[in-house]
Design a binder for these strands. Structure first.
Lengths: 411, 411
DNA sequence: GCACTTTGGCAACAGCGTTGCGAAAGTGGG
DNA sequence: CCCACTTTCGCAACGCTGTTGCCAAAGTGC
């Protein structure tokens, strides 16, 4: 499928991927981004921006492809500029011509499409009882998968988990890309490895915080450990953020969409997508949806507060009262919609998957009621339960590396 | 964006202001921005972006000024690029040299500063009982003010209010800038007029929604009416958003800051600033903080729901129990901080101004408690009561027009 | 007074998207 | 069939961006 390390074309293509948007984990192309303020843009940055924009449109067009003139309309650039940009992308193997459209009286438009095999990314989902790794191409299509059990509670410390994640990633890269190490695959088309796991963490520095019940994880520099071990770029994020990113990059979403992904499983959390990128906040701790207090002086929660959404919701689920759980969740979702004025609410997680209709209806009712009270009733925010296969988080984790290629990084 | 066909330096300067960031209410410089996706950038857009960035740094430097090399460090651009950019800004009258710093062994740095008089903006605050208009310069300094009573309840319809606002704006421009009409002032240095008023509205289209108790306002196209009447760019926004924007542009805030401005007066609302720009959401309705439900099946609220933050908070104020009001507000603020992971919480409004210490302490306690539960205790989010003079909203309304000049528009 | 450091502009340059124009590749009427 | 017309799209020239190389200006310190 793809050239091994050492063969010229492959290496060039991999370079093309990682530099298309100015690199994955460093400073964006051209001018350095300093903390404390937005950065200036020079010609390299401008080229990266436009190239990433075109790549994103190509990705969203999917198998249908998209013509140069359509790209020009969507970007606001001139057709000639699009021709130059797409020529560069084709030269790097990221785009290719794929047939032509029907003529409308003149020369028919040539259809361009993304070359999915030009880049790959590994996504690893570290859950409480298993580690799932997927290898996806630039389209986000899963081309390889591995699953192994791992009990976080009995795992012998952080280093053992690092080793498990690294081994999974390397085995996956080896069996699918035919490279004998991640480092070698990196010379080919591997962009990097994304890791998603539950609980609070510092996405920017790649350091874990205190996962409930696992004090030994607090402060562990997971990203740096994996970078040393694997030799490829690594990004770490919360599972809810990864899932939200994965949903944000599906073809159904347009570039500027905003939504909340609410995950109800063993816990309750949310990933916020605003303007097409994941909102992580000042300390990358945003999305703590489970401990929103919605009942003053309510029942105590494990976190030490009272009346948390998570406590109320999980208690209702425990009692078997799914309707009440949905109603409670709906109050929280309505609060969120009112505060942020997002486009839609997506529900996921094991508990939701058990009764998707009930949750979608119950939450939707509360959200619609709020919309009717204070806005135009016709414009109610839709509430949908996402199919939520078991791979959702792992696929989103892989997108952590691909998103910057398409200009969706670090919104 | 109507610079009249006039001659002279004034007209040139006004043009310089409004084009520095690609215009106020139209497409940004260079390439058209289409709905449904981010836009491509060309050289005009690149120049606008960098010029706006430098202007923003000049503005934030205030009276101290800032040297070219410091601008280069902060933007990531080369010193030579900064020299070119500042030369253009000086040519347009927007920047000027202002002394030099002490030498550090070589040629001393030349200090640059913003020329405040190069641009002006009118901000109008339409409150329930009065209309306050201020004229500010590029620094945001108030250089003129007018106040007149206006009872919204007895005002003879929307058109009468339009006339009142327009008359206030024109009188203010006349008495301070010496122009006999806003149209003429537009040919000089007037960037436009910003209007802030309570209640839900569509910021993007400039149309009012149903203000509680004023059905005749629903659907009224206030912005277009004012544009026709005044002949200058007009922006309409909620009072809380205007106040938040004003706070976001004070020198204390750096460019990428994020905070929530919580306003407690006759009602309860919030303005969200994320990444230095006001977050307005998909339908520009974000910030509906007052009707966050924090008590399931709580006391009924005027909006039709139960247990709203506003109902609980105002009831406590009514009872004279300020401590309880602060506690309730703190629950809502803590929810907000957890969800969005913002840098700080700012409290304002008449009720807060009555007991700033109590509110800051009460809210701060709840926010700190949450931070201690789930994060690093030392990094608690600060909660501050802003001085909150009566002009806060009007000044912020004026910034609605100035923000785009400094690259803070339509985040 | 001289060596040195630092600032900042002039000139040449590479590279961006844009404009002008022509070749390529279709459709549709005679 | 041929020809006029439309539409797509690339080559070449262009204007403008930020960058690089270089040097004058303006200080400090021995």
């Amino acid at each position: 499928m793809t050239a091994e390390a050492g063969s010229g074309g492959g290496a060039e293509r991999a370079q093309a991927v990682s530099s298309a948007a100015g690199g994955v984990s460093g400073a964006p192309g051209g001018a350095a981004r300093l903390p404390g303020g937005p950065s200036g843009v020079n010609l390299l940055g401008l080229r990266s921006h436009n190239a990433a924009l075109v790549l994103d449109l190509l990705r969203r067009a999917g198998a249908d492809g998209i013509s140069r003139l359509e790209l020009a309309e969507r970007t606001g650039l001139t057709p000639q500029a699009v021709s130059k940009i797409t020529a560069r992308l084709r030269e790097r193997g990221l785009a290719a011509e794929a047939g032509r459209r029907a003529s409308t009286g003149g020369k028919p438009r040539t259809v361009l499409r993304l070359v999915p095999e030009a880049g790959h990314s590994v996504g690893v989902h570290v859950d409480r009882d298993e580690v799932r790794a997927v290898l996806v191409d630039l389209n986000g299509t899963v081309v390889g998968e591995r699953l192994r059990p791992l009990d976080l509670e009995t795992a012998a410390g952080a280093q053992a988990v690092v080793e498990a994640v690294a081994a999974q990633a390397e085995a996956l890269v080896g069996q699918v890309l035919g490279a004998d190490s991640a480092r070698a695959a990196s010379a080919a088309t591997l962009v990097g490895v994304g890791v998603a796991l539950p609980g609070p963490l510092d996405h920017r520095r790649g350091v874990l915080h205190r996962v409930t019940g696992f004090p030994q994880w607090d402060g562990f520099p997971l990203r740096d450990a994996l970078v040393r071990r694997l030799g490829v770029p690594v990004v770490v994020d919360k599972d809810t953020n990864a899932a939200a990113l994965g949903l944000a990059l599906t073809a159904a979403e347009d570039g500027g969409g905003s939504f909340a992904y609410v995950h109800l499983g063993t816990g309750l959390g949310a990933g916020l997508v605003i303007g097409g990128t994941v909102h992580r906040g000042a300390r990358t701790g945003a999305g703590e949806f489970g401990h929103q207090v919605i009942q003053l002086d309510g029942p105590p929660c494990g976190c030490g507060d009272r009346g948390c959404l998570e406590a109320l919701c999980l208690a209702a689920v425990e009692r078997g009262d799914v309707e009440e759980a949905a109603r409670v969740l709906g109050v929280g979702a309505a609060n969120l919609v009112g505060l942020l004025d997002i486009d839609r609410v997506l529900l996921g997680g094991r508990t939701v998957a058990g009764a998707p209709g009930v949750f979608a209806a119950g939450v939707g009712e509360r959200v619609a009621a709020r919309a009717a009270r204070e806005g135009v009733p016709g414009e109610a925010v839709p509430v949908l339960a996402v199919p939520g296969g078991a791979r959702t988080v792992a696929e989103g984790a892989a997108q952590l590396l691909l998103a910057p290629v398409f200009g969706r990084g670090e919104g």
